[in-house]
Amino acid sequence: MKKNFYMIIMLLLFIGCSSTREKIYEIDDKKYIAKGKNERIQFIIIHYTAGANEVSVKELMSERASSHYLILSGEDEKIYNLVPDNERAWHAGISSFRGRSNLNDTSIGIEIVNEGIPPKYRDYPTYNLYDHYIEYEKMQIEKVGQLVRNLSVKYKIPARNILAHSDIAPSRKKDPGAKFPWKLLHDKYGVGAWYDEEDKELYMNYEEYSKRTIIEIKKELKDYGYEINETNEWDKASKDVIYAFQLHFNPKNSSGEMDLETYAILKALNKKYLHKK
């Protein structure tokens, strides 16, 4: 009898709970639209894999590293999308540019299969020279050009935010190296930053350059976007930044030493892009 009584009580409680339905509240995403926002994707970072196809695929499919896109070597005509654009890939590591850090959060990574630097040059005692790097294949560059053009239009990425891995991590990385053709991408596909030759010539003035202090030149690098210290010397960390800049914009003169031509290119870039977002 007591058991039946408890069963009746439980049944009544269940009926009472089920009759009280949770109210569903509508979400309105049209009436109020905030202006304080931006896209997750603000940068495109170019890498080389430093290995062949099989090794590169294995590494990028592991739990250690990844990229959004992979471009193989050889006759394969596809571009492989490994991570959806709206998800975070692990390609940038400790990184910074234009005041932002940890660029995995705000970038798309593109890996190109290329050995980078042959083993015989990897222990070179100073900064690797232009001839130490390996050429890219024509079809690889065509793929990169088309892909970066499409992504930069889709996500409204400014030219100054299309970068080398070495730009965002100059003391750790050298990729995509001195033989990645940034000027070709700029001229043929309209993507990435490049200086105007007439502006460079305007600043090829040794007398003017010789008056610039180290601090002033470092400020020019910082204004463009590079993370650099404010010491009044060209220490190793500062030379790493110079080398990264040269790999991108003055690759045949990639020495890690500031000189008139590198300075003129830097000034020309700031003249062209400094006031652009």
Rank of each mutant, 00 (worst) to 15 (best):
I15M: 15
G16T: 11
C17V: 09
S18C: 12
K23R: 12
I24D: 09
I24L: 12
E26S: 08
I27T: 14
I27V: 15
D29E: 12
K30V: 13
K31I: 14
K31N: 13
Y32K: 13
Y32M: 10
A34Q: 10
K35W: 00
K35Y: 07
G36V: 07
G36T: 10
G36I: 08
K37R: 14
E39P: 04
E39D: 15
R40M: 14
I41A: 03
I41T: 05
Q42Y: 08
Q42L: 08
F43C: 04
I44W: 02
I46V: 15
Y48M: 02
T49D: 03
G51K: 02
A52N: 15
N53A: 08
E54T: 12
V55C: 00
S56L: 06
S56E: 07
V57W: 08
K58T: 12
L60W: 02
M61W: 06
S62T: 07
S62M: 09
E63A: 14
R64C: 02
A65W: 06
A65E: 07
A65P: 00
A65Y: 03
Y69N: 03
Y69K: 01
L70P: 01
I71M: 07
G74Y: 08
E77D: 15
I79H: 05
I79E: 06
Y80K: 13
N81A: 11
N81K: 14
N81Y: 04
L82V: 05
P84W: 07
N86P: 00
E87S: 12
E87T: 10
W90I: 13
G93W: 04
S96V: 05
S96A: 15
F97W: 11
R98I: 02
G99W: 09
G99L: 09
L103N: 03
N104A: 11
D105T: 10
T106W: 06
T106Q: 09
T106K: 06
G109W: 00
G109D: 03
I110S: 03
E115G: 02
E115L: 01
G116F: 03
G116V: 01
P119E: 02
K120E: 08
R122G: 01
D123Y: 05
Y124F: 14
P125Y: 07
Y127S: 03
